[in-house]
Simulated assay, not measured.
Amino acid sequence: MIFDTPEARAVASRLPVSKRQHIIKFLRVPYHTYNRGLAMIARLHRPVDGGLPNLGVVGGLLGESGAGKTVISEAYAELYTAREGEMGMEYPVLYVSASLGMSRQRLGNKFQRATASPHRILSREDPIDWSVDRVLKCRTELLILDDAQFMFFNHRSSHVAAEMYGFVKDVIDTRMVSVLLVGEPDVDKFVYDIPSFERRGYRSEFLDPLSATPAGLKLFADLLKSIDRRLPFALPSRLDEYVTDFHKHSAGQIGRVMNLVEEAGYLALNDRSACILVEHLREAVRTRIRPGDDFDYFGYKATLQ
């Protein structure tokens, strides 16, 4: 939703506060990096407009924490919503996030929760055995594995890493599903060290933070304007007036920007404010300043006097 006229903003400001909170929490903001990430997933999944899914290949969407990978992946999955099929619910694009301490059994349990359907009957109950079978029964074309570094790195034992590699390979070897590994840059090195993955048409997109160059700051300002047009307030919050503060705090990473805007938005809702004010930004950033960072974000130091 975009609220870029006085009339649209007036309507948004009169929505129930719970609805306005939901809008702020789940903002989807197209911008340079976001669009590039979505385009990469689309090329991996369905490279020809109106054509068939590209099955049995593997790709990577990579970047540092806060680059927007999760939001982009979730947004793409939302384009292909679950549908009722002959054997139960079908998930053309299935999104699952890995976690620290992941094992093949825990991953199987995540698949079970993500694809829960009262109409589906599984031939086996052991998650280790049926996780691949589950993906096939759900008629999944693209499996998105977020935080993939937890599957292969982060001090995992060689046994667990081998289990995770075996699962991904089992899925790809069906030649009925493609896999997108979403995670930190080291995932690229892991894949290129495995010929069986590289041979499956592996390609990756690295999402850089928006830089502090003039061109980067211009894109960053456009991003802040785009966020502002989607905030459910009666008046614009003019976030782009604080380009330097937002960029310094976030290092150009969209995740950190959105965390700050979300907190400031909630403060504005509680104050029944017509928009996000600078004092809301000051309070939101106050508890998010890294040790040793003495930058005066949004002029908050004046409030300490």
Score class of each variant (00 low, 15 high):
K301D: 15
N270E: 10
S226Y: 08
I24G: 06
D188G: 01
V261P: 01
V177P: 02
E125Y: 04
V71Q: 14
Q112W: 14
V17T: 08
I276L: 05
V11K: 00
A215Q: 12
P236V: 13
Y34L: 00
Q105I: 15
M87D: 11
V171D: 09
D228N: 14
D208M: 11
L267G: 10
L304N: 12
N154Q: 12
I144S: 02
E84Y: 01
Y95M: 07
S117W: 00
A221T: 03
S250V: 03
R28Y: 04
C138Y: 00
E198I: 06
N54H: 12
P16T: 06
L136V: 10
S99D: 11
L210S: 12
I41A: 06
T287D: 07
I128C: 13
S211I: 01
V285P: 00
I72P: 04
E90A: 08
I254C: 04
Q305Y: 15
V171H: 09
S65W: 09
L15E: 02
R256T: 05
Y192P: 00
T244W: 00
L107M: 15
Y165D: 09
L55K: 13
S123T: 07
G59K: 10
V191C: 08
C275T: 12
R46A: 02
G68S: 12
R120L: 13
A215C: 05
Y242W: 13
G59D: 11
P53T: 05
Y80E: 09
P236M: 11
A39D: 10
L217C: 08
Y34T: 01
S73R: 05
I128A: 15
A116C: 04
S18L: 07
N109C: 12
N109E: 11
R124L: 13
G255E: 13
H249C: 07
R286V: 03
L61G: 08
V171S: 10
S226R: 12
S73A: 14
A302W: 09
L235A: 14
K169M: 12
R36C: 02
L142E: 06
E141Y: 00
G88R: 01
L217E: 08
R290S: 15
A251I: 08
N54I: 01
T70K: 11
E86V: 12
R229T: 07
